[in-house]
Structure formats: structure tokens, C-alpha cells
């Protein structure tokens, strides 16, 4: 399925972690579902009505009831432990990133600004989806700001989104994987419904090797200086 899936591959260290957690939850969920379905099918076949006798009327079994309370509880505690460990790592903001990207969302487009070099990429009504360019093998801090309503900055290849609330600047950081370089044309989208053209608030992601990225940034800075 992975080869044909429209889901972009994970391109950050955090996304790799999230995919590992996903696997744990997914297999456990499928296991629980299969267990219950098998139980129900067994019960339906084994205990179907065969005659008019009244079955036994025992209406409780304390040890069993404790067991089926404690076992799910233990599972949930395990899942909670996995969650806390990973979520703290994901939610940890890098104070000294290799690159900062300032994202401005507005109805219904994106602007990506690289404050260190002054480069800006703005999506317009009649342009294609804007492209967010990032370096591989680097830590990146995203500062998110909205000019109007709530948006949500979702890069599927990050397995992560963060809401953009007007009136505050939200932020998060990622560590781009060293093998992240590539084009991810369908990876970016606004996930929080934001009015009329919410569906068109998409962007693409392109990841370059660090050296190429620096060259690209210089080139963009020069272009924008000439244009500006």
C-alpha cells in the first residue's frame, strides 16, 4: 500500500517517531477490534437458540469483571506512557534552530518568510499553490501567524499540524531528516475550516540539500532585491 499511497513519506525525525507510535496504536486497535469481533461471532454461533430451555441466569462474575476492567486500564497506561514520551519530544520548541520560517496565513493563501535573509514567498489568487522550500538535515522553527481567522498549518509529511490563532503567534520546530530531500507536491494544506475557499489553501513542499538550500536562498534574495 505504501508505494501507491497518496500520503507523503515522513521527512522529519519527529514524523518518524510519530509513525512508529502510529504503528503501535494501529496494531493494538486492529487487535482489539479483531478480538471483539471474534468473540461476537463465537457467541453468536455457539450460543444461538437451540431449544426452549432457559439458560443459566448468573448475572455477575466479580473476578472476570475486575479482569476486563484492569486489562484495558493497563493497556491504556502503556499507551499513555508512549504518548507522553513522544509528545514531549514533538512539542519541544528548538530555541536555537538552523533556520526560522515565518508563516502568515490569511483567507485564503499562505506567505512564507525567511527572516534571516528577508526572502518572502506569497501565494496569490491566480498563482499556483505556493512552494515552501526547506533544507534537509537541519532544525527548523516555524512561527505561525494569522491575519484574519483560525487556520491550521498541516504538512502531511511532518505528520503534524498546528493551529494558527489570530492574536497570537504559535510555533513549533522540527528536525528535518538527512534523507528528506525531494518534492512533495501534495504535502501542505490548511486543516482548519476558514471560510469560502478553505479547500484551495494548499501549498507544496520542496526539500533541498543544505548547500543547495543556501544557494537557493541567496538566489531568491537577489531576485527579490532586483524585483523589489
Amino acid at each position: 500500500m505504501t508505494s501507491r499511497s497518496p500520503l507523503a513519506p515522513p521527512i522529519t525525525d519527529q514524523a518518524d517517531d510519530i509513525d512508529r507510535v502510529w504503528d503501535v496504536f494501529l496494531y493494538l486497535a486492529l487487535g482489539v477490534l479483531a478480538f471483539v469481533v471474534v468473540l461476537v461471532v463465537y457467541v453468536v454461533i455457539r450460543f444461538r437458540r437451540r431449544d426452549d430451555r432457559l439458560p443459566q441466569q448468573k448475572h455477575y462474575n466479580i473476578p472476570l469483571e475486575i479482569a476486563y476492567t484492569v486489562v484495558p486500564f493497563v493497556l491504556v497506561v502503556g499507551l499513555f506512557a508512549i504518548t507522553v514520551v513522544t509528545v514531549n519530544a514533538i512539542d519541544d520548541t528548538d530555541t536555537d534552530p538552523d533556520l526560522t520560517v515565518h508563516v502568515t496565513a490569511f483567507q485564503w493563501q499562505w506567505e512564507f518568510e525567511y527572516p534571516e535573509s528577508g526572502v518572502r514567498i506569497i501565494g496569490g489568487a491566480d498563482t499556483d499553490a505556493p512552494e515552501l522550500v526547506l533544507p534537509a538535515d537541519s532544525s527548523v522553527l516555524f512561527e505561525l501567524e494569522s491575519l484574519d481567522v483560525i487556520h491550521s498549518f498541516w504538512i502531511t509529511a511532518f505528520r503534524f499540524k498546528r493551529d494558527i490563532i489570530p492574536g497570537t503567534v504559535t510555533e513549533f520546530s522540527v528536525d528535518m531528516s538527512d534523507d528528506a530531500a525531494g518534492e512533495y507536491p501534495n504535502a501542505g494544506v490548511c486543516a482548519e475550516y476558514c471560510g469560502l475557499d478553505h479547500a484551495l489553501m494548499r501549498f507544496s513542499v520542496r526539500v533541498l540539500e543544505p548547500a543547495e538550500f543556501d544557494a537557493w536562498l541567496v538566489e531568491q534574495a537577489n531576485d527579490q532585491e532586483v524585483a523589489g
Partner: peptide, 30 residues
């Protein structure tokens, strides 16, 4: 009622996934 039981379990296990922010960051609003 049995249809309910099976459907409900199928919805319940994805609820557990969404209860974990680690996964919810990706899955919410999708």
C-alpha cells in the same frame, strides 16, 4: 444491537488513537 456493538468497537479504537496527541496532530481535522 449486534451491529451496534461491532460498529461501536470500530469507532472506539480510532477514538483511542485520537486521544493521543502524538497521533492527533496529524489526524485531527482530517
Amino acid at each position: 444491537a449486534i451491529g451496534f456493538l461491532v460498529t461501536f468497537v470500530a469507532g472506539g479504537v480510532t477514538g483511542i488513537m485520537l486521544a493521543s496527541p502524538t497521533l492527533d496532530f496529524h489526524l485531527t481535522d482530517s
